[in-house]
Design a protein around this nucleic acid. Structure first.
Lengths: 140, 140
DNA sequence: CTCTGTGCAAAAATTTTGCATTTTG
DNA sequence: CAAAATGCAAAATTTTTGCACAGAG
């Protein structure tokens, strides 16, 4: 779904080149930091401000077009909501992020949400552990 | 398990009053920030530095006596490893944290860890969503 | 033409580092 | 006494805010 432009317009927000570029980059990548996005844009269109990236991400999160996550290491990560359908497993040491399908876990997570009086829409499930690479390095 | 003092000693670290107080507070509470712990100590023993709290938490995390988590809102949260046996469900808006038993989810999470070449020990499973209170507020 | 969005600069919030002094074992 | 830990000050990192100017509708 590439529907951010329509949603922005419908909600009375302007379609600036900055916003379109940020959205475009979010379509390509998963779990990007504001800094990642900023650098990516700078390659082709130098001059965009990091502040603008933060403000745009905040707007997109508010409109539920983007989801923000905090992983055990590193800065906040952003990804387009339509990229979700998966969850993260993050190494607490090196920060490497893997994905897994939520199929089976999601049902259980939804049950938990109901029990705890949380909304079941857009549940995010993050597992953190230590990847075996880091475990090996620790031993040496 | 109140074993931090023994582990510290065994690993050649000193048992300072600051460390003991921090550990003591971690025994009582769940998901505390460095600032929370600092303020708690200041009530009875003014003068401890926030830096010391951070350094001690880092040490305890390194010794796997404490686990650090980042939730969707707010600063890093710390809790004693022996308090774990549960996972978190966090509201992305207000940051309220609930707990749930991992019994059933843990088996699934462990399977995922193995598939992804992560260690299954001390897996942390965090669900983030929006609590129904915040959902109601949004509507008004 | 108006109002929203941007860039720049500065601040805020959180965490980390350097170094002189104190404390533990 | 020697090594390690603390406090203080300063820096680093990440994110947020204020304001004048520019650009979208």
């Amino acid at each position: 779904m590439h529907h951010a432009p329509e949603v922005l317009k419908k909600e009375g927000h302007k379609l600036t080149p900055q916003r379109l570029m940020i959205w475009h980059i979010l379509q390509a990548g998963r779990h990007l930091s504001a800094e990642d996005i900023h650098q990516e844009i700078e390659k082709k269109f130098p001059g965009i401000d990091l502040t603008t990236v933060y403000r745009t991400l905040e707007l997109l999160v508010r409109l539920e077009l983007v989801q923000e996550s905090r992983f055990p290491v590193g800065p906040h990560q952003y990804e387009a909501t339509d990229k979700l359908g998966h969850s993260h497993i993050i190494c607490r040491k090196c920060g490497r992020v893997h994905h897994f399908d939520v199929a089976d876990l999601l049902a259980a997570a939804n049950r938990i949400c109901e029990n705890q009086d949380f909304s079941c829409a857009d549940v995010e499930l993050n597992i953190s552990s230590v990847c075996n690479d880091c475990l090996k390095k620790d031993r040496s």
